[in-house]
């Protein structure tokens, strides 16, 4: 009982004495996760366009090689970022750039890594989403005279993105948690702050209980908001059907 009380008191003191550090860590985590997810999604749009390129049968030989190169690049990109841990990517990017004399701030490096990682994951999701659309949607647009570009922009991407909302939400939640690994290069997110504050008096249990609670809080708020968003969409999708106006 006494031990438990002392843990509680230590945690309270820790929170009160380091409020600005905790808030800073929280802010960094939220920024990395949200901005990283959004930027990653935008990059994924570009990457998936690269990936679905197919050369026309009668296209010029050079053009066909170029198209294949673009496709390959996208495939290699996705393969690399899905095939290596984010922690390793962070080290490579941060220290790699440094050794090239192109040092960038750790936060920027962290944000870039999250974005690139998210992009790789969402490229796959988006590609699968496009593949899952009925091919009639594409044909209907083409038959109406729309260009392939317009078909993707106005018909296929909007539908795939709409179906992707849960996957994007999932990626956001993953990012909220996985940005913890960026502490390896010194990004001052929540994990980093937990370690730093705990190390002052070797009170890691207390500091990481706080870290856990903060993660639980933001992750659950995010899940709750995403749930609301999805519900709104499904409710709109199931307007009761009335048969008025049916011709006989």
């Amino acid at each position: 009982m006494i031990v438990q009380l002392s843990v509680f008191n230590t945690m309270r003191a820790m929170l009160e004495n380091n409020a600005s550090l905790w808030l800073y860590g929280l802010r960094t985590t939220l920024l990395l996760a949200f901005v990283g997810t959004v930027v990653g999604l935008l990059l994924a749009l570009v990457l998936v366009v690269m990936k679905i390129q197919t050369p026309r049968r009668d296209a010029h030989f050079m053009k066909r090689i170029l198209v294949r190169l673009v496709r390959r690049t996208s495939i290699l990109y996705v393969g690399f970022f899905r095939g290596t841990p984010m922690m390793v990517q962070a080290m490579l990017l941060y220290y790699g750039l440094q050794s090239l004399g192109l040092g960038i701030p750790v936060f920027t490096a962290g944000l870039v890594v999250v974005s690139l990682n998210t992009a790789a994951y969402l490229t796959e999701v988006l590609r699968a989403g496009l593949a899952a659309l009925h091919k009639g949607q594409k044909e209907a647009a083409l038959a109406l005279g729309m260009s392939p570009y317009a078909t993707y922009r106005l018909v296929l991407f909007p539908q795939a993105l709409k179906n992707m909302v849960p996957a994007i939400g999932n990626e956001l939640v993953v990012n909220l948690k996985d940005t913890a690994v960026l502490s390896v290069i010194g990004v001052t997110e929540m994990f980093y702050m937990g370690r730093r504050i705990g190390s002052a008096r070797y009170q890691f249990t207390e500091s990481f209980i706080i870290v856990s609670l903060l993660y639980l809080l933001v992750v659950n708020i995010a899940v709750w908001l995403l749930g609301k968003l999805t519900n709104m969409r499904t409710r709109r999708a199931s307007i009761p059907r009335s048969d008025s106006g049916v011709m006989t």
Binding site: H134, G136, Q137, A141, A143, A150, V155, Q159
Partner: peptide
């Protein structure tokens, strides 16, 4: 040349009116 398909292929993210407007705006 216009085309009508067996399975309709209406744009599922658009309402009835938008389905009939989209290509008019984009193509014409």
């Amino acid at each position: 040349v216009g085309m009508v398909f067996q399975d309709f292929h209406l744009f599922s993210h658009k309402n009835v009116l938008e389905n009939c407007m989209l290509a008019q705006i984009n193509v014409l």
